[in-house]
């Protein structure tokens, strides 16, 4: 669960500026994202790209050195949440309702993982998100994710 900004900016802030602000604040605000060394590398209108460096502490199979599926889940969840917050509806916060992850291949040991998420549809209270993750071989994804997230809309001005 993520809050976009404890002190939401006024709606007349330029959207690009707001997104840049989110990118800067996003990781610093989430202790677990920080623990995994995640960085937001791109934020667009309902899209986000988040990278996570390779780390020996995240190995899931000691015989191969492959990163644990759980760490990829944490990256996917963070990236999807960021895409929801970056959506033009200017959501105040979001929480995961459900998230499915397909593991297509083991990530190559020693390489960081980058996830890119798109919030492709929103209703009044729900955001639908897709994401893919890859290592240095960008054309060959390691995992895909699909999820539904809550959408906390800003209160209309009276």
């Amino acid at each position: 669960m993520i809050d976009a900004d404890p002190d939401p900016t006024t709606p007349d802030d330029s959207t690009a500026e707001r997104r840049q602000k989110i990118a800067a604040q996003f990781i610093a605000m989430i202790p677990h994202a920080r623990a995994l060394g995640m960085t937001v590398t791109e934020v667009g209108a309902g899209t986000a790209t988040v990278s996570m460096p390779y780390d020996d502490r995240l190995i899931g199979d000691p015989k191969t050195g492959v990163i644990a599926g759980g760490a990829v889940s944490a990256l996917m969840d963070t990236c999807c949440g960021a895409a929801v917050i970056a959506h033009p509806t200017q959501a105040l916060g979001t929480a995961t309702i459900d998230l499915r992850i397909d593991y297509m291949r083991p990530a190559t040991p020693g390489q960081g993982i980058t996830a890119r998420a798109t919030c492709y549809h929103v209703t009044r209270s729900v955001a639908f998100v897709r994401a893919t993750a890859h290592d240095d071989d960008a054309g060959n994804p390691v995992a895909c994710a699909t999820g539904a997230f809550t959408l906390e809309r800003p209160r209309p001005k009276s």
């Binding site: 669960m1 993520i2 809050d3 404890p6 605000m29 989430i30 202790p31 677990h32 994202a33 920080r34 623990a35 644990a68 599926g69 759980g70 760490a71 889940s73 944490a74 990256l75 996917m76 969840d77 963070t78 949440g81 916060g93 929480a95 995961t96 998230l99 992850i101």
Partner: peptide
């Protein structure tokens, strides 16, 4: 542990931590 938090204002566990715990 404090580093398992995903939303510091609530506070709540990170959804990725929950997924990882269930998968492990």
């Amino acid at each position: 542990d404090d580093m398992l938090i995903g939303n510091p204002t609530l506070p709540a566990l990170h959804g990725g931590v929950t997924a990882a715990f269930l998968e492990v």
